[in-house]
């Protein structure tokens, strides 16, 4: 794909792009990966802690504690987004904060806050899933295909 795009460029454009690339500061990949690994892990650690709390003090089982744990994480993420802190943590942590469920909550909350000025229905309602929408759509599509495959294979076996 990238090569195909390059072919359409004139030699002058190609030459310039090479020059521009030399001036592009490198993304600090090792630092980004390390931070993402530890922050992502830390969020999971918090999640595990919350699960343990639910099991120990609120009579949940390992199976039923999952849903309230996710709800608490979503609440925390939404709160941090509303307070204007989440995006700052995310600039530092990168994928560490966007991959876990907290990132999903942040994408919905931030879009809802941003479009509040355009009204509740068309603003908040219409835009809240602007970013999260595609995650939901492709999540459902992927689940459907996997479900279909599973059914096919179990039918044969």
């Amino acid at each position: 794909m990238a090569d195909q795009k390059k072919k359409k460029l004139t030699p002058v454009q190609q030459e310039y792009q090479q020059l521009a690339q030399r001036h592009e500061p490198k993304r600090p990949l090792v630092r980004n990966f390390t931070r993402a690994f530890f922050v992502g892990g830390f969020i999971c650690l918090i999640g595990q802690g919350i699960t343990e709390l639910f099991i120990r003090y609120f009579d949940f089982t390992e199976k039923t504690a999952g849903n309230p744990t996710v709800a608490v994480l979503i609440l925390l993420s939404a709160l941090l987004t509303g307070l204007g802190v989440y995006d700052r943590i995310a600039q530092w942590a990168g994928a560490g904060t966007s991959v876990p469920v907290t990132g999903f909550a942040n994408s919905i909350t931030s879009a809802a806050i941003e479009h509040r000025s355009e009204g509740l229905v068309l603003g908040v309602g219409g835009n809240m899933f602007k970013l999260a929408g595609s995650v939901i759509v492709f999540g459902v599509v992927a689940a459907f295909i996997i479900g279909l495959l599973k059914t096919l294979f179990t039918m044969g076996g």
Binding site: P28, D87, N106
Partner: peptide, 11 residues
């Protein structure tokens, strides 16, 4: 993106 959305920007 929305201003509070947590996406990391490149240098």
């Amino acid at each position: 993106y929305p201003t509070e959305y947590g996406s990391q920007k490149p240098p």
